[in-house]
């Protein structure tokens, strides 16, 4: 159920539907890349610093391609950096799940499993988009996220089936992330027409294949599927969690401190 507090709020700066859609996908990738960047030099072992950096780099590449394209479509002269560094909280269109703080390694893996599995289904269908740019981005990205999903899966299985402590933490990780899963499959009215014309992917169509995969992994890991009562929503309309402001402050500060500078 969408809560009444955000019902009254509309998206900050309405843009053309394809721009909105592309920005949403690009912001998802950008914000998650930012979160993964925080893990580097703090991972449980060097191999994970390496793996998370790899995943972060893939996502950053997706973000740059999508943001650049969104800027082109918009035609107002905004490039990838203008979009990444000069928008405020209410103009970001990422899902709330990607901005969630990293927590411990189990929370991060729970977020990775849920989101990478979503991207896998999304890009798998988007690669046949009627929009050739989105199709090309998706074709490359789906190979990357297949690996991301696999990486998360390996860890869910090991943490769920490892020790009592890892099992407990992994269950807790799922519990903390699952309230943000629902939003991934929410209907997006602005996207409906684009989906009908084969340009975009209707997110509601992704829930079933996503669940078929994720539910299986959770069960195999001897974990329980959470049943959250609260569902975080509104990211696509620029309604984020409190974490978003801090994330953007850190990400954007230096760029904003030197307007017009080249780096």
């Amino acid at each position: 159920m969408i809560g009444t507090w955000d019902d009254r709020s509309t998206a900050a700066t309405p843009l053309a539907p394809l721009v909105e859609y592309t920005l949403g996908l690009g912001d998802d990738a950008l914000v998650l890349a930012q979160r993964l960047g925080e893990w580097i030099a703090s991972g449980p072992q060097i191999e994970e610093d390496m793996a998370l950096a790899n995943i972060g780099l893939d996502l950053l590449g997706q973000a740059r391609a999508l943001l650049s394209y969104a800027g082109e479509l918009e035609g107002a002269g905004r490039d990838e950096d203008a979009l990444a560094y000069l928008r405020d909280e209410r103009d970001f269109r990422n899902l709330q799940i990607v901005e969630r703080p990293n927590g411990d390694f189990a929370v991060t893996m729970a977020r990775q499993l849920a989101f990478a599995a979503y991207q896998y289904e999304l890009y798998g269908r988007l690669k046949t988009s009627a929009d050739t740019t989105l199709a090309a981005v998706a074709a490359k990205a789906v190979k990357e996220v297949a690996y991301h999903r696999d990486h998360a899966t390996r860890w869910i299985l090991r943490l769920g089936g490892g020790t009592d402590e890892s099992h407990r933490r992994m269950q807790a990780g799922l519990e903390s992330i699952w309230p943000y899963v629902g939003e991934m499959f929410d209907p997006e009215p602005a996207v409906a027409e684009l989906a009908a014309s084969g340009v975009a992917v209707d997110p509601t169509t992704l829930r079933e294949p996503w669940a078929a995969y994720v539910d299986g992994v959770v069960a195999e890991a001897t974990l329980e599927l959470p049943e959250p009562r609260f569902h975080g929503r509104g990211g696509r309309r620029g309604l984020h969690t409190e974490a978003m402001g801090y994330l953007l402050a850190e990400m954007q500060h230096l760029h904003r401190a030197h307007p017009g500078a080249t780096w």
């Binding site: 191999e47 793996a51 790899n54 990357e144 690996y147 990486h151």
Partner: peptide, 21 residues
């Protein structure tokens, strides 16, 4: 060479370290 707890993780770590995708 590398360290990994099992073959699946070894393969994935090898991909990350020795082939960079």
């Amino acid at each position: 060479s590398l360290h990994a707890p099992d073959a699946e993780m070894a393969l994935r770590n090898a991909r990350d370290v020795y082939t960079r995708r």
